[in-house]
Design a protein around this nucleic acid. Structure first.
Lengths: 217, 217, 217, 217
DNA sequence: CATGAATGAGGGTTCATTCAT
DNA sequence: CATGAATGAACCCTCATTCAT
C-alpha cells in the first residue's frame, strides 16, 4: 500500500502536483488531520512555506485533493465507462459487460485508493466534502448510468419492477465491500487472483442469492 | 444525529463511562483526532486530568471505545441475531427473515452510528483497529452466520453454487450503502419511511437485478 | 528606562501579573507588535502555553494592559487628584495647586511610562484602543475635572470667556510635551532637577506668553 | 484619512517614490511593523523583489520615509514658516501672526499626517529615529524659530522672564493636543469648522488661563 | 482518587529576504 | 533592472500529558 499516486497527467505546476501527491500519500497513511504540513513539505521536497503559496490553508490542500479526485472520476470513471459500455453492449450480454466494467473500475479504484481513502474518511465528518462528493461524483455518475440502465430495461436485460437506483446501489454495495475487504483486510492483494470471486459476485448481483433452478432453464 | 450513545448497560465506573460517551460524541462530530481531551473532559463533566486516570493516553480512549463497540456487537448484533433467526426460520420464509434481521440491524446501527462512524474512520488508517475489528467482529459474525446459511442452503432457500461468503457480502454491501446513504446524505432520516425501499432491496438481494419472468413461475 | 512596572497592588493571579508586567516591559522596549509571546513568556518566567491560559490571544494581553492602565488612572490619577485638589484649594492659590497636581502627575506618569507608551502607540493605530482610552480615561477625567474648573471660574481664578475644554487642553498639551521631551529625549531625567522649568511652565499656562506688565500690577 | 501622501515633488526614481508612498499609506493604517513588504509591493504596483533593489531591508524603507519627512519639514515647515513670518510681522500683531502660522501648519500636518503618525509611532520605540528627529527637525526648527522669538521679545510682544523654549513648548503642546484630538478622535474633521476654537486656543497661549480683567485694559 | 494549572513540543501560518530567470 | 517563486526562521497558538494540591 505505498500509494504512488500519479497526478502527472494533470495540468498542474510541478510543485503543486508534488505537494498534492505528498499530501495524499501521508493522509493515506494516517488520515488528513494527522498529516502535518511540515511532513507534507518534506515528502514533497519543498519548503514548508511553499505549500502556502499554492494552498492558502491546510484545508485547501484537501480541497485540492478533492478537485483532482473529481477530475479523475469525471474523466476516467464516468466518461470512459460510457464509451466502454456503449461499444460493448450490442455484442455482449449483461454479465460480460458488468464484468468488463467492474474489472476496469477495480483497477482504477485500486490505483487511486489512497486518494479515495482520504476523501472518504473526510466525507465521514465534513458535510462540505460530502456535498462536493455528491454534486460532483454521485449525482453526475447517476445521470450517466441511468440512461444506460433504462436502455437495459427496455431490452429486457434488467428488472423493471424495481427502482433502478436500488439496483445500482446493489452493484455499488457489492463493489465497495469487495474493495474494502481487498484493500484493507487482504495483504498483497492482486485483482487477477480474484477473477472467480468476481464472477460469483456478478452472478449474485444479477441473479440474487436465491436458488437458480427455475431461472436457468 | 445527536449521538446519545448510551453505555449505561455496560459494567464500567461511572466516570469512565461518561468519558467514553463524550469521546464518542465528539469524535462522531469531528473525528477522533480532532477531538481534544479538554473538550471530552468538559462534555463528560470531569477534570481533564481525570481522563488520564482511566486512560493512559488519548489513543487508549479509542481502544476503550473499540472495546465497547465489540462488546455491543457481540452481545447485541451477533448473539441476538441468532436467537431471532432461529426462532423465526421455521415459520417464515427467507424474505421475511431477512427483512426482520435487516430492520432490526438498521435500528441498531442507527443507534450506535456515532460509535461505528468513529470505529470505521479509525479502521481506515490503523491496522491495529482493523485487526481488532476483524478478529472480534467480522470473523465472529461470520462464524455465527455461516451455520445459518448452511442450514438455509440445505433447505434449498439459498444458492449452493456460490461461496456463501460472497452472498453474505452482497447483503452486507447493500446494507452498508443503504446505511451510508441514509445516515450521511439524507437529512432527518426515519427508517419507518423506507419500508418499501427495504422491500425492494431485499428483492434485489434475493433475486438479483435480472428480469423475473422465468423465476417467478 | 528599565520599566519596572509594578502591578503588585492589583488583585490578579501571580502569573497573570507577571505576564502583564513582562508584556509591558518588552512592548515598552520595542512596541507591542514586535513583542513575541515567546519572549514575554521567558521574561515572565512561565511557559509560553501558560500565557494562553490567561489571555486567549496575544491581543488580549494588550487589552489586559489597557484594563490595568485604566484602573490605575481611575484610582490614582483621577480620584486622588480630586482629593488633593479639594484639600488644597482653600488655602493655596491656583499656581500652587497646579504645581502640586502636575508634580504628582509627572511622578505617576513617569512610573507608569512604559505602560502609557504602549497604550499610546497602540492607540495611534487601533480605533478600539482609542475608544477604550476615550471612554474610560479621557471622558471620565473630563467629568471629574470640569466641576473643579467651574469652581475655579466662579471664584474668579480662571477665565470665563474661554471654553474650559480648551484651557484643560493647554495644560494637557504642556504636560505631554514636557513628559515626551523628558522621557524620550533626555537621558537619565530626574524630575527634581526640573522644578524651575515646571514653575516657568505653569507661569506660561496661567499667564500665557505675552508680556506681564499690565497684569502684575 | 485616506492618506494620499504625495511625494511627487521629491527627486526620486518613480518606483522608489511609489514604494515609499505605499509604505506610508499602509503603515499609517496599521503601523510600520504590521505593514508587510508584500502588501507594500502590491499597493506600489511593483514586484516584491523590487522593493529590495531600492531598500536593502524593510527597516531601510522606514529610514527612507524618515528622510523624506525630514526633507518636507525642512523645506515646507521651517523655511516657508520663516518667510511667512517675516513678511507679516511688520504689519500684523502677534495674535494674527500666530493664527496664520498655526492654520498653515495645521493644514500641513493634516496633509502629511500619515507620514507623521508613522514617524511618531516609530520614534516612540527607536532611539535612532528619535535622534534623526531631533537633529534634523527639532533642533533645526528651534534654531529657526529662536531668532524670531528673540525679535518678538525685543519688540515687547512676548515675555522675557521665561525661557523661550518653554513658550515654544506651550505652543507646540497646544498644537499637538489639538491635532491629536482632531485627527484621532474626531470623525471627518474639517479645519475650517474649528476657526473659533483656534482663536480661543491662541488666546490661551498668549494670555494663559487666568482671568483677563487686569490685562486687557 | 480527582483536580486543573502548568507545561512545551509541535501545529499551521506569515513574511522578510534571496536569486534564477 | 525587474520579477515573483521559493525559502525557512519565527510567529501565535493548541493540546496531550504531568503533578502538586
Amino acid at each position: 500500500m505505498d500509494s504512488n499516486i500519479d497526478l502527472s497527467e494533470l495540468d498542474l505546476p510541478d510543485k503543486e502536483k508534488r505537494i498534492l501527491e505528498a499530501a495524499i500519500q501521508i493522509s493515506n497513511e494516517k488520515g488528513f488531520s494527522s498529516a502535518t504540513t511540515s511532513e507534507i513539505a518534506k515528502r514533497a521536497g519543498v519548503a514548508e512555506g511553499t505549500i502556502f503559496r499554492y494552498f492558502k490553508t491546510k484545508k485547501d490542500i484537501l480541497h485540492g485533493v478533492m478537485l483532482q479526485a473529481i477530475k479523475i472520476v469525471s474523466n476516467k470513471v464516468v466518461i470512459a465507462s460510457l464509451e466502454k459500455i456503449f461499444k460493448n453492449e450490442e455484442q455482449k450480454d449483461l454479465r460480460t459487460v458488468l464484468k468488463d466494467i467492474l474489472m476496469d473500475r477495480f483497477n482504477l479504484v485500486q490505483k487511486f485508493f489512497p486518494m479515495f481513502r482520504v476523501v472518504i474518511s473526510e466525507a465521514l465528518f465534513h458535510k462540505d466534502i460530502r456535498d462536493a462528493l455528491f454534486e460532483n461524483i454521485i449525482s453526475k455518475s447517476s445521470k450517466t448510468i441511468m440512461p444506460f440502465f433504462n436502455d437495459l430495461a427496455s431490452k429486457g436485460q434488467v428488472r423493471t419492477d424495481i427502482d433502478p437506483m436500488i439496483m445500482i446501489r446493489s452493484m455499488v454495495g457489492n463493489f465497495f465491500v469487495f474493495i474494502g475487504q481487498k484493500m484493507l483486510f487482504t495483504d498483497n492483494f492482486k485483482l487477477s487472483d480474484s477473477e472467480k470471486e468476481i464472477d460469483s459476485m456478478i452472478a449474485v448481483i444479477i441473479d440474487g442469492i436465491s436458488p437458480q433452478h427455475s431461472k436457468n432453464n
